[in-house]
């Protein structure tokens, strides 16, 4: 069986920090899977990202639709022309976010990200559109607000090959 689910990079947050950025992501895969496991130093927050080619795109080129359940109610909403795209959920308890970056290295289409967030407050799903048409080789991961990651958060990026 060919190797189609390969670890590109993994990072464990050594001490409280606000973000982590994957750089120089090779274009040799078809899709990317990002796994983030750990907790924040304080409150429940949306986990978000900015992507780009050679640098992070901080312009209003992201849109997002979400569906969430809090245990007592469900809701859906949208953000358009935003400066980042939600890819999960982090809390002050152990949390897991899984994001799929589809066809990330093509240089023709805008890119879609599908994700699931899981913490003690919410089960949540997102779809994000980044309006860049260049290959993604940089991904910055951070919380929507200024809440930092606690030490021990593990971020791992995997590459998926279609063949």
């Amino acid at each position: 069986m060919p190797a189609t689910y390969e670890s590109i990079a993994t990072h464990t947050i050594p001490s409280t920090t606000a973000s982590y950025t994957f750089t120089s992501i090779p274009a040799t895969y078809t899709d990317l899977v990002l796994i983030v496991n750990g907790k924040n130093i304080s409150s429940d927050q949306g986990l978000t990202c900015q992507v780009g080619t050679g640098s992070i795109d901080t312009a209003a080129n992201y849109s997002c639709t979400y569906l969430l359940g809090s245990g007592t109610s469900s809701a859906s909403g949208r953000f358009t022309s935003d400066t980042n795209g939600l890819i999960g959920r982090m809390g002050n308890d152990n949390s897991t976010s899984i994001a799929h970056f589809m066809n990330y290295s093509n240089t023709t289409t805008k890119k879609t990200i599908l994700s699931r967030g899981n913490n003690g407050a919410y089960a949540i799903a997102h779809v994000v559109l980044w309006q860049g048409t260049t290959a993604i080789d940089t991904i910055k991961v951070f919380n929507l607000t200024s809440v930092s990651f606690a030490a021990g958060v593990v971020l791992t990026l995997y590459g998926i090959k279609a063949a």
Partner: peptide
């Protein structure tokens, strides 16, 4: 640490009801 789990499930059966569930488990 406590273990945080992401779980997705479907029970599609071409009937009158089906369940699609997304679960955040701790």
């Amino acid at each position: 640490n406590n273990k945080s789990i992401s779980l997705d499930v479907v029970t599609e059966n071409n009937g009158t009801a089906s369940l699609l569930g997304l679960q955040a488990i701790l």
